[in-house]
Nucleic acid binder design. Structure first.
Lengths: 291, 291
DNA sequence: AGCTCTTATGAATCATTGA
DNA sequence: GTCAATGATTCATAAGAGC
């Protein structure tokens, strides 16, 4: 194989697999409540999604009233329960809105409703948004974090911790140079593929396990969707909770960031999106990504 | 008063009061439910506390079963409501326990119960523990964060944001040296967020406001108490939510870290602790601290 | 490659104004 | 009164251009 067969994007270090091994994501336009019915039971290894938050993204999604949020969500959670394998995981990226100076409670109620339906609330990861929205208010600072709720069907589930290990050597070197601890995540994202190529860089170095706090900047480049999350967020969980060839589902896929991440990591993926106008954008991104 | 009477620590800007102005914390041994009855109504500016978690510190409170936690806590919350000034704040440092592979829900239930009793759930700060406890588990990473729930009685409350400002990032020096044309006018964001900025307003600023994620290392020094937090945690909230001479209360004060912080910052403080054997330790710390 | 510099942008919140 | 629309406020980061 010539050295040019695998191209490497600058800075990010994302491996682009050769065309023969490319796994194309599937995109279904429509309400995921109906779309999920088409999937066989226990066929998905990981559900990673960021649903519309209550009354957020109003201009594009109409906005779900906070009081109706749990009632709106739970039928969809039931379908997710059906399609998820017993060994699978459901990662839900969500944050409550502040209204009238107070935090709303629909996320707390959602966790409780999920447990009543048999989901195990296994973990709560924190996404620390390094470059959060600016702003100033008399009784509030800028909001720099979101929840990543981890639900499972069973107490033991597929988790491949070695896939997200961090090169401890680099981290220590950086600390000596007085760089912030968050730089270790940047190192991590530089060796994003995590499989094959970049792992060799770590030979002879000590590796450390990460914690349940993820330091990731919000995306600055993507102008096409009102609420994208950075690629490294789904990538981290896909590497941690699935193997190559496994299936990833994003029932609220938006501009398709989860699908791109799955494609990069050679996982099967299915995305669902209710707004038809996103379809072309998603397909374009997939096409440009895989080559 | 001579200029040297009030010394100012470099960096932190904390005023150190002269020895004559030393404010001694008050320590009450006993269940805070009874102890708080001795305090007048609306006499406290800030309640900062880290209560015993469910089933933790079994020996002290006889081990509160997770199912009884809210019922145990709420009468105490009612007394806190009584003693807190209308402009005051209640910061609750808490994290749910994991049992049998699943996160328990007593913290979620507690937030809901507090709201029913009239507390406003104003904010949730994240304490990112930079050097969290080591360990390895098959389905879990190290837990590197805790909740700091901010409750208030009113929508507007005392908050002195300037007291916790941090040095502006180095990016500013370069960024502001030369301003482009768009920097001089309001530059609308393209993402329909309605967010825009006028960069030229930033010239001359040396400090920035923090976010709601606090990066504080845990302390290893306090081995005598099972649930201690670092001094800088109460210090940050005391500076933010009170003025010198104001009153701070910690109803579960343990080894007295909140009291030490209050003493350092020339605030009145009251600590309550159910275990009599802590009294000597607390008084010793106070004595050594104040000189 | 490595550095400096420029530019875009991100799930926001609150007070005020007008219907 | 209430409710909706509008304006004002604010950082840190990644990507890319240029040297």
């Amino acid at each position: 194989m010539p050295a040019t067969a695998v191209k490497r994007r600058k800075e990010t270090g994302i491996s682009i697999a050769p065309a023969t091994a490319l796994i194309r994501p599937r995109v279904l336009i429509g309400d995921c409540l109906k779309a999920m019915e088409k999937l066989p039971a226990e066929s998905v290894d990981l559900i990673f999604t960021s649903p519309p938050y209550a009354e957020a993204r109003k201009s594009s999604y109409g906005g779900i009233a906070p009081n109706d949020y749990v009632v709106w969500f739970m039928p969809r959670a039931k379908e997710m329960m059906r399609v998820l394998k017993p060994s699978g995981s459901f990662i839900l990226n969500i944050k409550e809105k502040t209204a009238n100076g107070e935090k709303l409670t629909y996320v707390l109620e959602l966790i409780q409703a999920m447990r009543k339906e048999g989901w195990l609330w296994t973990e709560e990861y924190i996404w620390h948004k390094k470059n959060c929205y600016p702003g100033k208010w008399p009784n509030r600072f800028r909001d720099a974090w979101e929840r990543l709720l981890h639900f499972t069907k069973r107490k033991t589930f597929k988790m491949l911790q070695e896939n997200v290990m961090i090169p401890a050597g680099d981290w220590q070197k950086k600390r000596l140079r007085k760089l912030s601890e968050t730089d270790m995540i940047r190192d991590e994202s530089r060796s994003k593929s995590g499989f094959g190529k970049n792992i060799s860089h770590w030979v002879g170095r000590e590796k450390a396990y990460p914690t349940n706090v993820l330091h990731i900047a919000t995306e600055c480049a993507n102008k096409n969707h009102s609420a994208t999350f950075p690629l490294s967020l789904p990538e981290w969980f896909i590497k941690l909770l699935t193997e190559p060839g496994d299936t990833v589902l994003d029932p609220f896929c938006g501009s398709g960031t989860t699908l791109i991440a799955a494609q990069n990591l050679s996982r099967e993926s299915i995305g669902m999106e209710i707004l038809p106008e996103y379809k072309e954008l998603i397909l374009e991104r997939i096409k440009n990504n895989g080559g």
